[in-house]
Write a protein that binds this DNA or RNA. Structure first.
Lengths: 103, 103
DNA sequence: CCTTTTAAGTTTGTGTCACAAACTATACCC
DNA sequence: GGGTATAGTTTGTGACACAAACTTAAAAGG
């Protein structure tokens, strides 16, 4: 039985920031790639990579349209992503709150 | 202004577990290396490496005595370590609680 | 129009790090 | 004293975060 189950996809600081921002969006709303980069203080390269990880996990939905400088990428958290973040928060609270009995 | 300041020394899951366990100890108390390995579910190699990182940061105090199979290593959180964990917890709470105003 | 600049993503190279397997050293047991 | 158990250390490797360099294409501007 593992002591905790801190979702490693979310635990990385950069992805945690992304998920928090996306989670704060009203469901149905989206945020643009560049704006998300500003808010999370991530370079485009990093943002792309982390979004890929999150998308593979099913935690975010990424919509792309256009090409070159006309490309528009919109990002939103999925329901699964919101659940995963909530679960992460709960797990962390539990972990941090545990007053281990001494051996 | 950085959005957050999640202490990377503590943020690693293994070290977070270690710090939580040590923090739960009554100040003045210590835990043995093998016992700490059991409780945190870390192999001896990992435990050693992570304890080194934590010791370098000044977050834990490590006392060694004896040699070979007689060696006894006792570990405890320092005051600075306890403060750092509290700060980490607070930072995380703040980060997770933030309902970002949408732009 | 052709060139420059700007904007939006993508690819790539590098250093760090977590992890566990292999190793060393010493005591206990028969 | 050979084998086993215990405590801790060293080492090799694969994953990953990060930012710099690159690609594509639209506006600006002369």
């Amino acid at each position: 039985m593992p002591l905790d189950d801190l979702d490693p996809v979310i635990h990385a600081v950069a992805r945690l920031r992304i998920m928090v921002v996306l989670n704060a969006l009203t469901p149905g709303d989206e945020i643009s790639f560049p704006r998300l980069g500003e808010v999370t203080d991530l370079t485009a390269g990093n943002l792309l990579t982390h979004l890929r990880r999150l998308a593979e996990a099913g935690y975010v939905a990424v919509e792309k349209s256009g090409q070159g400088s006309m490309s528009r990428t919109l990002v939103a958290a999925t329901d699964e992503g919101r659940r995963a973040l909530a679960h992460y928060r709960a797990t962390l609270d539990r972990l941090l709150a545990t007053p281990e009995p001494s051996p």
